[in-house]
Amino acid sequence: MASFIQLLVSGLATGAIYALIAIGFTLLWQTSQTINFAQGEFVMLPAFFVLTAMNLGAPYWLAALIGIALAVVILGVLFKAIIVDPMIKHGVLPLVITTIALSLFLKESVKDFYSSQAQPFPALVAPRDLHFLGAVVSLQSVVVLAVAVASVIALHLLLNKTRLGRCMQATAQNPTVARILGIPVGRMVLYTFLINGVLVAIASLLISPIYLAKFTNGETLGMAAFIAAIIGGFNQVRGAILGGIILGVLDNLSAAYLSSSYRGAFPLLILIVVILFRPQGLLGRAEERAV
């Protein structure tokens, strides 16, 4: 029983990480139909901004701020302006190819200009372990979970309780009508890219101390976030958190009780089942036909 609780608790902690990355993923999809196959690399990269800043002598807090700022500018503003904007009217697929190329570009750049070696990364919180019903969980994981939940609540409030948020939602649901209503659609889309930039930077700061900073980190994380986003509901922010947690727990339970060599298969099977029988995801709302 203790081991079962351990699996649940650990899965919850890992799931929170996936959720944090998946949130931004769904945001980009909702407002700009961007399926960002470089999302994992977006999380990998800010850690190296921070490390570079620290190597140049910045203290951790300053380096972290620089990392977030760079992530917002490069992975938010520039990503949208240089890559997404020119391609958005040409459909999803060219953009998919571009984000795949972008992920290769980011990985290779970090490898060549920083290092191919995994790097230790300073922890945001003290490396303490908490005991809970016979299970152990690190304080770091609890912080990740808290941040993920807080992010979702904050986003939920922003989207539903503020005028800005409702404008963003209108943009996501029907850009044409939104434009007619006088909503600055372009700016609303930009905001979601900025939010994604902040989220991936925070995720990077939280995850890198646990997983170490390495150029290949994005591959696993990106795919996990992708699966989490779909399971939870591709068009709902709160779906991402459910999807992430289901994925994290399921991953652990299947590796422990079913088959360790097929551990990667179970989330994919769930994904297929969800798409076939509830394509809008567990918490997603059905997409209405536009025409």
Partner: peptide, 21 residues
């Protein structure tokens, strides 16, 4: 040499941005 994949990825992105078809 070492940077060939970076350049390749960049060219693919440029190609896609300028001729998405």
């Amino acid at each position: 040499e070492g940077y060939y994949l970076i350049i390749y990825a960049m060219l693919v992105m440029i190609l896609m941005v300028f001729c998405p078809t």
